[in-house]
Structures are given as structure tokens and as C-alpha cells.
Design a protein around this nucleic acid. Sequence first.
DNA 1: ATTTGGTGTAAAACTAAATATTACAGGAGG
DNA 2: CCTCCTGTAATATTTAGTTTTACACCAAAT
Lengths: 142, 142
Amino acid sequence: MHISTKCSVAIHCLVFIHEYGGQQKVTSELLSLSTGSNPVTIRNILSALKKEGILCVKFGTGGATLNCPLSEITLYRICKAIEPDFLSKLIGVHAMPSPLCPVGKNIHVVLDSSYKKIKEDLFESLQKITMEDIIDDYHHLL
Amino acid sequence: MHISTKCSVAIHCLVFIHEYGGQQKVTSELLSLSTGSNPVTIRNILSALKKEGILCVKFGTGGATLNCPLSEITLYRICKAIEPDFLSKLIGVHAMPSPLCPVGKNIHVVLDSSYKKIKEDLFESLQKITMEDIIDDYHHLL
DNA sequence: ATTTGGTGTAAAACTAAATATTACAGGAGG
DNA sequence: CCTCCTGTAATATTTAGTTTTACACCAAAT
């Protein structure tokens, strides 16, 4: 699974914080129960989102809050925060083609141009969707 | 790496077959040397491409040849042949959110709609690129 | 018809990557 | 100064991907 499920856990956390953060202190323990992941995993995810400026985590006493408007939190930012080079890992090229073969010698460069396009397309696709859309979807569902 | 490197090996094989298939019998052994992958891996890849109608493999005596025009071989077809449900595996959702939590109960459905869009975008992106483009790139490079 | 060089595929062994667990130091606030 | 929380490192554990081994079966050449 290689936009990691950590990404969906992150979105889950952001929804939770946005919707219920006003009513209660949102700790890694609580999010762990809600998402079904381990508290350390949650802490790592929150920590990554914090570095990206997406949220704040109160040190010591605990509790996470959003740090920027929903419309500025794109899926790309979330994925990027969780796994900085996920785009380059999206499509792999076999490592050891033979340098003696004309195809083997050049396949890397040849694929590079096409693969770059695909990555750019995915980038744009992920930029188009924001947490605002997701919260909207959530409200419509309730 | 989750459009598998098998996909790039497949492209490598197709380039090889197209460019040098006229001059020599292209066996899994030969492709194994050129790509640096194991012959069984190659046979599995060729077998998958064969099922998709992309190429033919002569049984017994050996040798692979293309079975359809380059312009009809899209990257999507290749990826799909290699790993039929690669699109659904692209983005995962965490398996066990709590059904007791309003977010946990609904997160699956909420993500579904956004994730579907991303998968469709990737699908189109992969359909746009064909082996014709890749062979062109290869020729320009030589 | 037998030999040679190839395919197709299953099963086992190996390797690498993602994930969860344990453990503990350190901060904030009552 | 005690309690509840975070941050992070180190260590399992699980899971997925890959390679290797093995062998049945095929076709063409001799």
C-alpha cells in the first residue's frame, strides 16, 4: 500500500480534531482508540503534521488543535508530511539493468520523462482535494 | 514501491522486443540478462502481458513478439496486466477504526469519494502514455 | 524418437519494508 | 512533587515482495 494507510489515519485524526476538539482534549490515546492504531503511531503522525504546520500539539499537558484553515490542508500536504518522498517512491524502476545492453543502458533515462509526468499528475490530483472537501463529505453523511 | 518495479521491467522487455526482436529470438533468459531480473520473474511478466493480449510467446521453442500496435499499449494496460488491482491498492484506508466513534464509523465512506477521484486521475494519467511515446523517447536518446 | 533449449507454474526460502510494541526521559499544570 | 501527557529510540513482529529451486510439458532439429 503505497500511499500509506498512515495517510488515512492522519485524515481521520484531523476530522476528529476539527469536529470534537472543542469539546474535549484530544490526546494520542483517544485518537488511538478512535482510529484503531497504536498510540505511538498516532504520536508520530501528529508530530509529522505539526512539522508541516498543519496542527499544534500541546506539550506536557497534551491535546492537539488545528493550526490552519481547512481549505489550506490539501491531501498532498498530508501525504508529504507523513512521508516526504512518497512521490518518488510511487513508481519504481528496476535497479540493475545491464549496462552492456543498449536498452539496459538507457531505460532509466527513457522512463524518467514519462514517470515524471505521472508523478506531476498525481501531485495535482492530491492538491485539488482539501480537508474542507472531506469535512463537507463528513457533514453530509451525518 | 507500489506501482511495482515489475512494471518498469515489463516496459524494458517491450522496448527490447520491439527493437531487437527482428534480429534474434527473445527468450526469458536473454531478457533476464538485459533487465537484471531473474528469468522466472520475466516469464511471469511475459505471461501476464500475454494474457492481456500485448504480446505472444512461442511455446516450446521460445521467443516473444509483440501482438498489437505500440499506440494501443498504454501504461495502464501494462500495470493492470502485471497487477490487476493495483489501483485499489494505491491508497489504503486503515482497517479497524472504532465503530463506536462517529468519525470511525464513517471515515471509510468519507474517504471513499475522494480516493476514488484520485484513482480515476491516475488511471487517466496512465492511459495517456503509450509504448509509442516510450519508443520515441528511446530513439531520440540513441 | 531422442536430444536440445525453451515455456509455465508451484512451492519454498530469503529479504526487505511497514507496523506495532516496549521503554523511558522530559514537560506542564494542578 | 505527582499525574497525565508527549517525543523518540530501540526492538520485535508481521507482511509483502522477490528470488531460487524444481519439474512437467512443448516444439523443432537431427
